[in-house]
Design a binder for these strands. Structure first.
Lengths: 135, 135
DNA sequence: ACATTTGCCTACTGTGTCAATAGGTTAAAT
DNA sequence: ATTTAACCTATTGACACAGTAGGCAAATGT
C-alpha cells in the first residue's frame, strides 16, 4: 500500500512541473491547488528537499523549484525516497537482516520477480509522462 | 508491503499441500516445521478457515486439511483474503469512498495499470507452482 | 465416562506508522 | 523593519502489526 506520503509527493512534483519552470512556487499555492493540508505537505516536501529532488528558497518571493527537467524524474525514485522503500516484503529491503530461511525459501523467487516487476514499472514512468497522459 | 499475515498464510498452505493429502495436519506440527509462533499462526489460519480455503477438524486426531487441490489455489486469493485487500492505493480499494478528484486525477491511470499488473501476477501463481519451483 | 488432543474464541499488549496539527526559528526580499 | 516563506521540533489520536495469554468447545481413544 502506497501511503499519502508518496502520492502527495508525486502530485507536488507534478504541480511544480506544470508551473512555469523559471518561477519559485510557494508551498501554500500548491497546497491550495492540490487540496492538501499545507502543514502536512510541508513535512513531505522536506523529504524531497533532503533528497535533492527539489530546491527550497526561503524568504519573500521564495518557494520551491525542480532541480531537473520533468522528464528526468521517475515515479520510482520519488516513491522510494518518500516511502522509505519500494520493497514488497521485508526480506527484500536493503537494510534487512539476512533471513535464515533464504536458501530453502520456496517463495523468495516469487517475491524477487515481483520486486523486479514493480521496479520496472515505476522506474520507467516519469513526471512528464504523467502530465502528458502517456500512462 | 505484504505483512507476515499473508506470507505466513502462504507458507501454511504450502506446508499442508506438501503433506499427504489424506491426513489432517495439526497446527502445532506446521508451526514447528515453519518456525512460526503457534499462537500467531492460529490467528492467521482462522482467516483461512473462515474463507473456506482450509478445513479445521477439532479433537484428537484433528488438524487442518486443504479443501481443494494445491494447483487450484492462487497466491492472489490467499493474499487478498489475509491482507484484506491487494489494492496499492486507497482509492482502488473496493469499499473506498469515491474520490472527488477521480475525473481529473492524472495519476489514477498509473495506479490502475499497476493494479492490473499485480493481480495478473499473483492470480496466476498457484500453491502447486511454488512447491514445484515453477516460479 | 474420562482424559487427552486439537481447534476455536476473546481479550490484551507493546511497538510503530500514518496523517495530521501546532508553534516557533531562520532566511531573504522589499 | 516588516513581510514572506521555508525550515525545524514536538505532539497527537487512531490504527495496524506481531504477537501473547487463557479458557472453551469438539472429537477421539481407552
Amino acid at each position: 500500500m502506497i501511503s499519502t506520503k508518496g502520492r502527495y509527493a508525486i502530485r507536488f512534483m507534478m504541480d511544480l512541473a506544470e508551473q512555469s519552470q523559471d518561477r519559485t512556487v510557494p508551498l501554500e499555492e500548491t497546497a491550495a491547488r492540490q487540496d492538501i493540508s499545507k502543514k502536512y505537505l510541508e513535512m513531505i516536501v522536506k523529504i524531497l528537499v533532503k533528497g535533492k529532488l527539489v530546491k527550497g528558497i526561503s524568504g519573500k518571493g521564495g518557494g520551491y523549484r525542480l532541480t531537473r527537467k520533468p522528464e528526468e524524474y521517475t515515479v520510482g525514485e520519488i516513491l522510494e525516497l518518500t516511502e522509505g522503500t519500494l520493497a514488497v516484503v521485508a526480506c527484500l529491503n536493503e537494510d534487512a537482516e539476512q533471513c535464515p530461511r533464504e536458501s530453502i525459501c520456496k517463495t523468495l523467487p516469487m517475491w524477487r520477480k515481483f520486486d523486479s516487476l514493480v521496479r520496472d514499472y515505476f522506474f520507467h514512468i516519469t513526471i512528464a509522462d504523467l502530465i502528458n497522459g502517456k500512462v
